[in-house]
Simulated assay, not measured.
Amino acid sequence: MKSLLFRLAGIFSAEIGSELYLKLKEETHSPSLFCLDFTEVSEVTEVGWEFLRKMAERCKETGSKVAGFGLKTQISEEARSQMSFFQEESECILFLESFYLGEAPANEQIPTPSAEGKTIHCPECQTLLRFKQMGDHLCPKCQTKFFVNLKGWVSTYERLL
């Protein structure tokens, strides 16, 4: 499962909202977790709220989850019912982790006995892959290197050009 943190700044309007929505849409081929950091956002316009509503709907359709934190403006009840907002980053991350993964933190290092393995999607080409243990992995199709933790969260490595 992929998890992404988006740090936003300025006025959350049509421009930022549309770019973020397109990125979110691109990343929701498989269930993912999206955490939105609003601490540097000074205002959310009416069109910005509409894009947040569309993001929440897209996540609901694909089995993904989106939540935000650090928003300094008032949140309407309608917006609050569509998407969860928190004061602190840690609260938001804990909420997202618990939604899919239960009580333990995502970076838990205790091995679990699993004979059959689990399935994940390659973060680059979305190929369904089976893995038996956490650690570094290589996609046989696109040769992308990534790390899988005990919970099945996928972290990609940045490429230096």
Rank of each mutant, 00 (worst) to 15 (best):
K23W: 05
L20K: 00
S13W: 00
R159Y: 08
G135C: 06
L33F: 13
A106N: 13
Q143G: 03
G102F: 14
F99V: 12
P123I: 02
T28E: 09
A79W: 05
Y100S: 15
G135I: 03
K141M: 07
F34A: 02
L22G: 03
P140G: 09
A115H: 15
M55K: 05
F131P: 02
F147D: 00
F69E: 00
Q82K: 14
C122A: 08
C125Q: 01
K54A: 12
E19L: 15
I110N: 07
C139S: 06
S42D: 07
F95C: 01
S3R: 14
S114M: 14
S81E: 12
A56E: 01
S18L: 07
L5Q: 09
S84H: 12
S76R: 03
A104R: 14
L33W: 12
E116I: 14
S18G: 07
P140C: 06
A106E: 14
K54M: 11
T73W: 06
V41S: 00
D37P: 07
D37A: 10
D136S: 04
L52T: 01
H29V: 09
C92D: 07
K2G: 07
T119R: 06
A79N: 05
L20A: 02
C125R: 02
A67I: 00
S42F: 04
L5P: 03
K141V: 08
E89N: 11
F12Q: 02
F34P: 00
K132R: 13
Q143C: 09
F85K: 01
E108W: 12
L161Y: 06
E15I: 05
V148M: 01
A9Q: 13
S18K: 12
Y21M: 02
L161S: 08
E15L: 10
Q87C: 13
E158P: 10
M83W: 02
K2P: 12
T127G: 03
D37E: 07
E15V: 07
K151Q: 14
I11F: 03
V41I: 07
T73F: 06
F12C: 03
S90P: 04
